[in-house]
Amino acid sequence: MSTANSLDAPYDVAAGDRPPLALIAGPTASGKSDCAVALAQELERRGRRAVVVNADSSQVYADLSILSARPDADDMGGIEHRLFGAWDGAQGCSAADWARAARETLAEIHGDGAVPILVGGTGLYIRTLIEGIAPIPPIAPSVREAVRALPVEEAYAALLREDPERAARLGATDVTRVARALEVVRSTGHGLAHWQARTSGGIAGTVALHPLILLPERQALYARCDLRFEGMIARGALGEVEALLARGLDPDLPVMRAIGVPELAKVVSGEWTLETAVSRGAQATRNYAKRQFTWLRHQPPADWPRMELQNFNGRLLRDILLRFLG
């Protein structure tokens, strides 16, 4: 099997070529979407059609156009985009759901002889697609209920006893991941490492991956996060949340817990002022960007290039394109 060594090289899937896949990952507000469109436009200038594919867990929902910063027609720059707004908010999109759809989408794009450009910052989505998914059996409801009722301090102490290897890799205050690790070991009798060693369905061996991770300077990134959230308010984010609340969806659905939704919902209910919601929403955005930054710096393979950015500008964008195109 041959491998596409550059994104604009011709390839033939039917002949057994391993087709190219560009991946631009970065925290929210890092400029990765603009980079993806610019790369696609450059590829098309070179005669190779390109398609941008979403790997962001908020931008998958049709209900979250503004609050997810989903690209509009102008942002898309004439480039086809897939898996943006593809899920109704009433249906949760798990990492496995998204990876399944992404595999099908990438196969279609490759079948057409085009180059897919995966863009996003949801680490679990990216890892599940590339590496596959662990065959963890369903968690017993009684176990899940008991674990989720524990204060995080008690849950972490229990995890230290029952799965010390996993506990050592987690922060003691990481509510979600600590609970997940504890419920897995209690329900299945094995820790997460046992199941993750048995992952299957990943595409790493079937594509020629061209990854790049954007890591902007932290304070500049946080400033962009603040500006982004304020801009969302100006573009009608409050109305978007009002429409979402009017659907009467389960508050535990991912779309209802997306950044900005709980904060602006309190404005709709009269609990908070808009000023308070903007402050809390901007802080939640910064916290999320910080978690993404940390994950992207340490979790992907060490040989994936990391580009540390000081300022996002035209020259930097050209540098990024050169990394992909040589």
Rank of each mutant, 00 (worst) to 15 (best):
R186G: 02
V184F: 02
S200N: 08
R198E: 09
I233L: 15
H194I: 04
H210V: 03
A223V: 09
V178N: 03
R198A: 03
S187N: 08
I213L: 13
A204W: 15
T173D: 15
F229K: 05
R218Y: 03
H194F: 15
G205A: 11
V184C: 07
A193L: 11
A234E: 15
E230K: 13
I233N: 04
G191D: 11
L170G: 08
R198M: 07
F229P: 01
W195P: 01
L214P: 03
R228H: 09
G189V: 12
G202H: 10
P211H: 13
A223M: 05
W195D: 09
C225D: 06
T199W: 06
R180V: 02
A197G: 14
A179G: 11
D226A: 11
Q219N: 14
I203G: 09
R198W: 02
R224Y: 05
I233D: 05
M232W: 14
L192P: 01
T173W: 12
G191E: 09
V207F: 09
R180H: 07
L182F: 05
T206E: 15
R177N: 15
L227P: 00
R224C: 03
G189F: 12
R186A: 03
L214K: 07
A172P: 00
D226E: 15
Y222P: 00
P216K: 04
D174I: 00
P216E: 06
A208R: 12
A223F: 04
Y222F: 15
L182M: 06
A181R: 01
T206L: 09
Q196Y: 14
Q196F: 12
L215S: 11
R235C: 00
M232P: 00
R180N: 05
E183N: 04
G236C: 10
P216Y: 05
L214T: 08
I203K: 14
W195G: 03
R235W: 02
H194P: 00
G202M: 09
P216Q: 05
R218G: 00
A181V: 05
G202E: 12
A179P: 01
S200M: 04
T176F: 10
A237C: 10
V184E: 01
R228C: 09
Y222D: 07
A181L: 04
A193W: 08
I233H: 10
D226Q: 11
G171S: 12
A172L: 05
E183D: 09
A179V: 00
A223P: 00
